[in-house]
């Protein structure tokens, strides 16, 4: 088990390094340079050279990448061009908002989705199953920002049950959760349908397998057969999909944060891209990448815990 985890983390490190290099190159290919943005059109060549030197933009690209990696490992992602605060500090200030939003969204979606999927599989072709099927497909088809806009209009503006903007008062957990309801509804809704469909399909497959017949032939209670024996296997693909789905969750979070004017990585990226604030763009995208890599790695490790065959590499 330990060797599996170490191997998986090593792989994650390699993936991160490749992703960061790619990111670095992509950002440098974006038209427009930070020096003109910062100094404006009337800057003298001397001022430009000085700033380029300060930001290290005059060095060869390969040196810039190497320097970036070296600094990154020390936790130094450079300085914000405008406020002169360390980028790490700025980004780390936003990460908890986004991470919290994503985790709450996927958690409620997973619990409800798994429950609906199990119900549908056990009561296959019943009215409830068909209804769940239709609803699942409809919510999968609705993008997060549409749910965000409509839930904002209905529940925040019209009914005024929930606040419309912001992330709530710092330190007041109840208020923060209250602010999380609508955004997490927007992000999680389509996942409920998606997970329900996924669990239903894999559950039906597992329920048809020989070992389930064995469990029933030994008179095990149906509840234990479904949740103790079948779900253990049927949940595996869902864990993987959620791990990989972190990318979609992040992009859904960007839209949702904009709609609800919530602080977070999404808002930070948008703001810094429009101002060509390279270090901050780089820093926030780097953290998004990290969240993605960590979540896929975690999904693999959870699967290995759930399925001994993966651990053994079979």
């Amino acid at each position: 088990m330990l060797s599996f985890i170490i191997k998986r983390i090593g792989l994650a490190a390699v993936i991160t390094a490749l992703a960061v290099t790619a990111l670095f190159l992509i950002i440098h290919m974006i038209p427009g340079d930070p020096v003109s943005t910062m100094l404006g059109p009337r800057a003298t060549p001397e001022m430009r050279t000085a700033l380029e030197e300060r930001m290290g933009l005059d060095r060869p690209l390969i040196v810039q990448i190497a320097l970036f990696f070296g600094n990154m490992l020390r936790g130094d992602l450079g300085m914000d061009v405008f406020s002169n605060r360390p980028v790490t500090q700025i980004v780390l200030g936003q990460v908890p908002y986004t991470l919290g939003l994503i985790l709450v969204s996927i958690s409620w979606a997973a619990v409800l989705g798994v429950a609906l999927g199990c119900y549908s599989a056990v009561n296959r072709n019943s009215l409830g199953d068909r209804l769940t099927g239709v609803l699942s497909v409809s919510v999968i088809a609705v993008p997060a920002f549409v749910v965000a806009l409509y839930s904002l209009l209905v529940f925040a503006v019209k009914l005024q049950w929930f606040p419309a903007i912001g992330a709530g008062e710092a330190g007041n957990l109840g208020d923060q959760l209250h602010h999380l309801v609508l955004p997490s509804l927007a992000i999680g809704l389509s996942w409920v349908g998606y997970i329900a469909r996924l669990v239903r399909a894999s559950m039906l497959e597992v329920l048809g397998e020989g070992h389930i017949r064995t469990a029933r032939a030994f008179g095990l209670p149906e509840g234990r057969v479904v949740f103790g024996y079948a779900l253990r296997l049927a949940i595996l693909p869902t864990v993987t999909v959620i791990g990989v789905g972190m990318g979609f969750l992040l992009s859904a979070a960007v839209f949702t944060e904009i709609v609800f004017s919530r602080p977070g990585l999404g808002k930070l990226v948008i703001d810094s891209i429009t101002t060509r604030n390279y270090p901050v763009v780089m820093g926030s995208v780097l953290f998004s990448t990290l969240i993605f890599v960590v979540s896929t790695t975690l999904a693999d490790i959870i699967n290995a815990i759930l399925d001994p065959r993966i651990r053994a590499g079979k």
């Binding site: 070992h211 064995t214 032939a217």
Partner: peptide, 23 residues
Amino acid sequence: RALRGAEISMVFQDPMQTHNPVL
């Protein structure tokens, strides 16, 4: 259900599929 596994029990054809793979 009370009879299954107590009074009547079964051995199935394919031993590779008989047991739950993750327990």
